[in-house]
Simulated assay, not measured.
Amino acid sequence: MPNILWTRIDNRLIHGQVAVTWSNHVGSNLIVVANDEVAKDPLQQSLMDMAVPGLDTRYFTIQETIDKIGQASDEQKIALIVKTPQDVLKLVRGGVPIRKVNIGNMHYSEGKEPLTNTVAVDEQDKEAFRNLHRLGILLEIRRVPSEKGKNILDLL
Rank of each mutant, 00 (worst) to 15 (best):
N3I: 10
T7S: 08
T7E: 06
D10S: 15
R12M: 02
L13N: 12
H15S: 13
H15E: 14
Q17E: 08
V18I: 14
A19K: 00
A19D: 14
H25M: 02
H25P: 01
G27I: 09
S28Y: 07
S28N: 12
N29E: 09
I31P: 03
V32S: 03
N35W: 05
N35V: 05
V38C: 14
L43R: 04
L43H: 04
S46I: 09
D49W: 04
V52D: 06
V52E: 03
P53S: 05
G54P: 08
G54D: 10
L55Q: 09
R58G: 08
I62T: 13
E64G: 10
E64R: 08
T65I: 01
D67P: 06
G70F: 06
S73N: 15
Q76K: 05
K77Y: 02
V82G: 05
P85M: 09
Q86P: 03
L89M: 12
L89W: 00
L91Y: 10
L91T: 04
V92P: 01
V96G: 06
K100C: 05
N102T: 11
N102D: 02
I103D: 01
I103F: 01
N105M: 06
M106T: 07
H107N: 14
H107F: 14
S109W: 04
E110V: 12
G111H: 05
K112Q: 10
K112S: 06
K112V: 09
L115S: 02
A120P: 03
A120M: 09
V121N: 08
A128C: 14
H133W: 11
H133Y: 15
L135S: 11
G136V: 03
I137A: 06
E140P: 07
I141R: 08
R142H: 05
P145G: 11
S146E: 15
S146L: 15
K148W: 09
G149L: 03
G149F: 12
G149N: 05
G149H: 09
I152T: 00
I152R: 01
I152Y: 00
L153E: 10
D154A: 13
D154E: 12
D154V: 02
